[in-house]
């Protein structure tokens, strides 16, 4: 856990995010029909999901560690990762909806990708409800860890696999161009990949701060 107390990666995260903010809005992008300048949303929408996947994945790792060792800190880290991930989930949905308004014509157009993302959000809302329904700390930690591990693969199937099999309007699904070798301009990669790393690090940073606050509260409340 030493990693979260170091400074270098936080500076890196800030630099990368500022770079993508400026470069994402100023650099050249290919001019495509329908998309036009909204293609720049790629730099802000997709990294939200990358950040969400990273913190959710870290949360699953902590859940597994909690189940193996039973240390309370791991459970706290896991739940704070989920809380941070849900914030990025909402940001990803909102940026996607804003983009959809300009390209598909509606904020919510009953698209499979949007619907499964909403279902996956319900899955994690259920996690929060499940946590609050149990009072005993160890039992709560154990059951919510189990549910968290159970929910993660289902979330991946919902967001990544199912929409690909149906006719979604979303890029990358239903034969639409997205990250394929020929589709993505190399000049866009220069901005997109740093954005992935930057936002994922920001997500980890937020989660680590929340975890540290939670840890202080936890230590205050324990009886020695």
């Amino acid at each position: 856990m030493k990693f979260i107390y170091q400074t270098w990666w936080k500076i890196l995260a800030v630099v990368l995010v500022f770079y993508t903010l400026i470069a994402g809005l100023l650099f050249h992008v290919p001019t495509l029909p329908i998309l036009h300048e909204t293609i720049r949303n790629l730099y802000f929408h997709v990294p939200m999901w990358m950040a969400m996947f990273s913190v959710f994945f870290i949360s699953v790792v902590f859940s597994i560690m909690y189940l193996n060792t039973g240390k309370e800190e791991y459970d706290l880290a896991s739940v704070e990762c989920v809380n941070t991930g849900m914030m990025f989930f909402v940001l990803g949905l909102v940026t996607g909806m804003m983009w959809a308004k300009y390209t598909w014509g509606e904020y919510w157009s009953n698209d499979p990708k949007q619907n499964s993302a909403a279902i996956a959000f319900l899955l994690y809302c259920a996690y929060v409800v499940l946590r609050n329904s149990i009072d005993e700390e160890q039992k709560r930690g154990k059951i919510s860890s189990i549910y968290n591990i159970f929910a993660f693969p289902i979330m991946v199937v919902l967001i990544m696999v199912l929409p690909r099999m149906t006719d979604s309007l979303h890029p990358g699904n239903g034969g639409n161009p997205a990250f394929g070798k020929m589709d993505l301009d190399n000049r866009m990669r220069v901005v997109l990949y740093p954005a992935f790393i930057g936002w994922a690090l920001i997500g980890v940073w937020i989660a680590s701060i929340r975890y540290r606050i939670r840890l202080i509260e936890h230590k205050k409340n324990t009886i020695n």
Binding site: A120, L122, L123, A126, L130, I143, A151, I154
Partner: peptide, 16 residues
């Protein structure tokens, strides 16, 4: 394990 109530069963199972 979490208190056996029907609400929880519905909330947990429907997204899945």
């Amino acid at each position: 394990k979490a208190g056996n109530n029907g609400t929880l069963m519905a909330i947990l199972s429907f997204p899945v």
